[in-house]
């Protein structure tokens, strides 16, 4: 398991090497070109996909939903999300006032 954390929004993206089969669907469908093949091979001999540019990630869930083998997923940090929502609400109220 390789864990990456977004520097600003604090959510995690996890790639599971033991499940990956190297089909490349997550790499092809990522709109921001964040993912790529690594130089490593897993136990079954597949060349695995890994997160390479986490700063560009926009949390569109395209990689998680296109993966047929449940090998890549996003773990939301619920606390920071709630804080962000509260901040957004506050800014909107201020704008209205």
């Amino acid at each position: 398991m390789e864990v990456h954390q977004h520097p600003e929004k604090k959510y995690y993206l996890i790639t599971d090497e033991s499940r990956c089969k190297g089909c490349g669907l997550c790499i092809a469908f990522c709109p921001k070109n964040c993912l790529g093949f690594s130089d490593e091979y897993n136990d079954k001999g597949w060349r695995v996909a890994k997160m390479q540019r986490m700063r560009d990630c926009i949390k569109c869930y395209m990689c998680e939903r296109s993966c047929p083998d449940f090998a890549i997923f996003i773990d939301e940090n619920e606390q920071t999300e709630k804080e962000e929502l509260l901040k957004e609400e506050k800014t909107q109220e201020e704008k209205k006032n």
């Binding site: 398991m1 864990v3 070109n33 700063r55």
Partner: peptide, 21 residues
Amino acid sequence: KTNEIDTSTMVKNPPKKFHHP
């Protein structure tokens, strides 16, 4: 679109065990 590999965001000691939803 760049192809540079950025490993600075990797977490080596994750705070909890992650599992697929």
